[in-house]
Amino acid sequence: MTAATLNPRLQEIVDDFNAMPGKERLQLLLEFSQDLPPLPDRYAEDRSRLEPVPECQSPLFLAVEVEPDATVHLFFEAPREAPTTRGFASILHAGLDGLPAEEVLATPGEFTSQLGLQDLVSPLRLRGMAAMLARIKRQIRDQRG
C-alpha cells in the first residue's frame, strides 16, 4: 500500500492516534467528539441546507462552503448521543476546515484506516467517516463547477 500524503494537520492527528495504546485512542476520539463546533445559526435555522449522510449509522448532517479564493469551510451536526460519529466529524473538521479546496480534494479516502481504530470501531462506522469525506469532496466539486 503506497502511503498517500496527508496534509500536515491531518497527518498530526493520525500520528496522535497511533502514538497511543488502543483504549486511549477511544478517549482521544471522545475528546474530539466534545470539541466539534456547533452549527452556525444560518444552518441551525435552515436545516434544508444540510446534507444528510445516511452511511453513518447515527444521524449526521454536513454543509460545505467554498470561498471565492477556494478556502473550504466545513459544518457538521450530530447528536450528543452519537459521540463516535461526532468524533469522526470533528477529526475531519480539525484536519480539513480552512484548507484550500485542492488540498481537501487530495485527501485519500483510505486515510480513515490509518487512525488505528479498526480494531476498536466497527468497519461500518469507519466507512461512515469515509462517506463524509466523499460527500465533502463531491460538494466541493459541485460548487466549483
Binding site: L26, Q27, L29, L30, S33, Q57, S58, R80, E81, A82, P83, T84, T85, G87, L120, V121, S122, R125
Partner: peptide, 9 residues
Amino acid sequence: DEDVLLYET
C-alpha cells in the same frame, strides 16, 4: 451500545 464511545460519556 451501538455507539462504542457512549458508555465513556
